[in-house]
């Protein structure tokens, strides 16, 4: 057995153990009586109104559990599983012995055999289904979008949720797109510095990087205005600024400088327009000179400073 298979099996076993505990305690799921793995499942975190609150996650777990029991893959044991967990009226609120008896009868087993052999199987099935639901939820978390070739155009349904989801994806894509363009220029600057390229070429690349950085700041500000300071649907409290930061190291800027750049980084403004508007704004030339110096490790060429000044 390869190590990853062993780890995955062990995780499923642990989860099945925690599912057995839920069976024993019955529903509703109580925050103080539920295992940590169940509460940290991606499907649970994704559904919890407040992922940092144990009570909220316990409520989300119960909903996920009910939904997965409603669509349990194993048709033969599905009815027994619902009786065992008490999610159907017949056993809702009943003690474990009564739930188990009803489940054993429904599945056609003697109750002791059911407890020893079938019940663990049901818990394993439910645990597996919860894990798969978790994987689906993980896939729903935003990351740099992975693109695929498509054989037909994307047609969204006429639905407000779809429109909003598309708007959000659009904002996220704009942000990642700006970050990747900045990344390309930062790498370009590093290469030119490493090659000891002529100063004019290095400074020119640094200026393009500054323009791309301004576009990142503009896309970040646009995201914040529409969705707030935290990326929607991220596993943790990931901020839109962190997407921009993932492009690579950039020189520190003051909040005023960031505001200035963000205002000049509109997606429709070209490099020449950006450079001209930056030079015309108060502090713009100094900002550009300091950026070049910090990014390239060189002082700006005298002719460039003269040109700027």
């Amino acid at each position: 057995m390869i190590p990853s298979e062993r780890t995955s099996e062990s995780a499923a076993d642990t989860l099945a153990g925690e599912v057995r505990l839920v069976v024993r305690n019955g529903l509703p799921v109580r925050p103080d009586q539920v295992g940590p793995r169940l509460l940290s499942l991606a499907a649970v975190r994704a559904r919890a109104l407040d992922a940092g609150d144990r009570g909220s996650r316990a409520r989300a777990l119960e909903a996920v559990l009910r939904a997965e029991l409603d669509r349990l893959d194993n048709a033969e044991l599905a009815a027994a599983a619902r009786l065992l967990f008490g999610v159907v009226e017949a056993t809702s609120g009943a003690k474990l012995t009564a739930r188990r008896q009803a489940a054993a009868t429904a599945a056609g087993y003697e109750v002791h055999h059911f407890r020893k052999r079938i019940e663990p199987k049901i818990c394993g099935l439910v645990a597996g289904q919860l894990l798969r639901a978790g994987e689906d939820a993980e896939a729903a978390l935003p990351a740099a979008p992975v693109l695929h070739a498509a054989a037909r155009p994307l047609v969204l349904p006429a639905d407000v949720f779809a429109w909003e989801a598309a708007e959000h994806q659009s904002a996220v894509a704009a942000l990642w797109g700006a970050a990747y363009l900045l990344r390309a220029e930062l790498v370009n600057v590093a290469r030119l510095v490493s090659m000891d390229a002529p100063p004019g070429e290095v400074d020119g690349a640094a200026d393009v990087a500054l323009w791309r950085h301004a576009q990142v700041l503009a896309a970040t500000a646009a995201y914040r205005a529409c969705y707030g300071a935290v990326l929607l649907h991220a596993a943790g409290d990931l901020s839109p600024d962190q997407i921009g930061s993932s492009a690579g190291w950039t020189p520190a800027l003051t909040p005023a400088q960031e505001l200035l750049l963000g205002g000049l980084g509109g997606p429709d403004d070209g490099f020449a327009s950006f450079t001209a508007r930056l030079a015309a704004s108060g502090g713009g030339r100094d900002l550009a000179a300091r950026w070049r110096q910090a990014l390239t490790g060189r002082r700006s060429r005298p002719d460039q400073e003269e040109h700027d000044g």
Binding site: A151, L154, A166
Partner: peptide, 14 residues
């Protein structure tokens, strides 16, 4: 064909 992220991620979440 629908592996376009607007569908595969956000809409599932909705």
């Amino acid at each position: 064909d629908d592996l376009v992220w607007a569908k595969e991620r956000e809409i599932r979440r909705v």
